[in-house]
Design a binder for these strands. Structure first.
Lengths: 155, 155
DNA sequence: ATAAGATAGTTTCATATGTAACTAATATTG
DNA sequence: CAATATTAGTTACATATGAAACTATCTTAT
């Protein structure tokens, strides 16, 4: 007579999706708090600023692709940034549906204040790893990203 | 005369907090959709079931600690699970404020259905990595977790 | 040239989530 | 043994979020 079968064990603490989620939340929360406290920005607004600084004249749709935000989130973040005067909407000449988005001088100023702080946060985080480990982590995350979402490139 | 200083570059695509967040979301979403579609459970409810299966008689507060959920989220997940009959609340004899939570037989049944599916999802994900890489990833994530949240143990 | 789709972006609505206030019970202090 | 502080958990409220509907514009096919 066979033994009662043991169900496969599942410890949350070793379950990758859980660990990833907890780690990501811990990291995001630190950094989100910084953006909000110092500059009154949400993490979504910050992401929009970052890609707009990188690619002035970008459209909302492109922002969504680069940041993995859905179009509603982009729309709201953009509206908020325009409201506080960090972003400007320029009608596109060749397609009246889209706008070309650019940071205002004020937006650029804030962006340049945030960048070093954000990089410092990141540095503090990855400072726990050696150069080699950092490279390896990036490589492994890339593999996971492809496995998790083969259809579209996550980054 | 000094050159105009270049602001430090920040590409979202190589910024660890961003990459972590995107990866974690991609993974969570796949798995959340599975729980919801097949069993009508939220990811929070699943986490509560997982730790309750592991430690029958656990209290809501302990669940919060183990899952990194705040007490409101635990309260709601527990209420939902009781509602659908997967969880039972037993008053604690020595402390009338707390309850001892246990899975019902129905809850155990569902749990045992989910576990292999969840593990299969995880396996598919980490299948992209060699054994050695998996170990290394876990180690690096552990270091990051400590750097991100030195105060409390994330897992 | 025009009707039928497709696309960019916004608005609406329903739900999820977090913070703070609350209730009930236990622990601590003088 | 009161009076006060702490803890477990829930409820209420305000805000965040996502899905679907919508508007305006552009593209495609006839």
């Amino acid at each position: 007579m066979p033994e009662k079968t043991h169900p496969a064990p599942l410890r949350l603490a070793t379950f990758l999706p859980f660990r990833l989620s907890v780690l990501s939340n811990a990291v995001s929360q630190r950094i989100a708090e910084l953006y909000d406290r110092e500059f009154g920005l949400s993490i979504w607004q910050w992401r929009v600023m970052a890609v707009t600084a990188d690619t002035p004249g970008i459209s909302a749709t492109e922002i969504g692709q680069r940041t993995q935000m859905d179009k509603v989130a982009v729309s709201r973040a953009v509206a908020g940034l325009i409201e506080v005067g960090y972003l400007e909407r320029r009608p596109s000449t060749d397609d009246a549906r889209r706008s070309n988005l650019v940071l205002t001088p004020a937006g650029i100023g804030i962006y340049e204040l945030i960048v070093p702080l954000a990089l410092a946060e990141e540095a503090q985080l990855v400072g726990a790893l050696s150069e080699k480990e950092q490279t390896e982590l990036a490589r492994l995350m890339g593999k996971l990203a492809k496995a998790a979402s083969p259809e579209r490139d996550l980054w």
